[in-house]
Design a protein around this nucleic acid. Structure first.
Lengths: 183, 183
DNA sequence: TATTGTTATACTCTATAACTATA
DNA sequence: TATAGTTATAGAGTATAACAATA
């Protein structure tokens, strides 16, 4: 069958009014279902659930959702936490080294550090020996915040370990350690 | 130390010319380093490498990079592959069921299905019994493409298994299976 | 009134590319 | 010529919010 055949691609504009957007504040949405969601017949996941990529994505969704929720109490994202941790472990690093270590684009990392600097968590100063570099340090505020973030991360892991069992948790940690080497 | 003190936040506009953007086509960039990248001293990852979230992200980077590269040969993303797989395993599903099963927003899924429909891989037709529904089926082209995608995924997993060892691979699969249950 | 799907908006990530300043 | 960093841009993904059609 060729692409674009047999009724495929019809979809007559079902609601083509636009540009209304009056921002009516009342009638606050609740478009996520309360119940009647459990009453739906579950989908077969087919081969998908056997694929490693799918499983890793499920794991990431689970773990990141919980970690993000806990870090959000400090207005910090997982990526920001990683950067703070790396700066603390390597005082005076430059931005490119962090970007490469975390597999983040240097442009994106620059914006991220901008934000941390504006919040007074990171000090960015020009290197004396090579003026192309910015060297990064945690401020006292950054060090203090990081000390409060770590227990939040630990709480998250403890919760997961309790949910899946400490044995399964440590096996998971061990199995994932193969990815810590170079990419 | 308060935020915004002691030289923090200075950053004197180091290159404030903008709006040049002439799109000179020659001199094609090569801004990623050829060598001299191995010569850099490696960063200490500090506590970060012990955190589960960090390990899962490393794993995801590794696996998705390889899978994406292989699927890109068919101009398909991992998310599109998942949707095609789910439609094949559940002919006649509606969009919301897929979105919930994959933890994708329904708005984003709509755009994704739009794309697959335009390529003639998915047929989207109105349900006869409930006219709010679109029911989704793979076209013959979609079925045929999926049959060619699966070996690409299998190749990727085989490559990883060879790299880390079949024992480590199956332990990884088993350890990750705890996330297949409900979130 | 609740549900399915679409559209719009915004914000983040990612990936490129071009540019400045420096080496 | 190569490197560190910034800026701009475009594409995805995510998260809301509003809306139409339908139940």
């Amino acid at each position: 069958m060729e692409p674009g055949k047999a009724g495929v691609g019809k979809r007559i504009a079902k609601g083509s009014r636009r540009a209304a957007r009056v921002a009516k504040p009342s009638r606050s949405a609740k478009r996520t279902t309360p119940a009647a969601k459990a009453a739906r017949p579950k989908l077969s996941s087919g081969d998908l659930s056997h694929s490693l990529g799918y499983r890793i994505r499920r794991a990431q969704l689970w773990v990141f959702k919980d970690v993000s929720r806990r870090l959000a109490a400090f207005d910090i994202s997982p990526a920001q936490f990683s950067v703070l941790s790396l700066i603390e472990a390597n005082p005076g690093v430059n931005q490119l080294a962090i970007a490469q270590s975390l597999s983040i684009e240097r442009a994106g990392l620059g914006r991220l550090v901008d934000h941390l600097e504006r919040r007074g968590l990171v000090q960015r100063s020009a290197s004396a020996i090579n003026r192309r570099y910015y060297v990064l340090y945690l401020t006292e505020a950054g060090t203090a915040l990081l000390a409060r973030l770590r227990p939040a991360i630990a709480e998250s892991e403890k919760t997961l370990a309790a949910k899946i069992g400490p044995r399964a948790f440590s096996e998971l940690q061990r199995a994932l350690s193969v990815f810590l080497q170079d990419p």
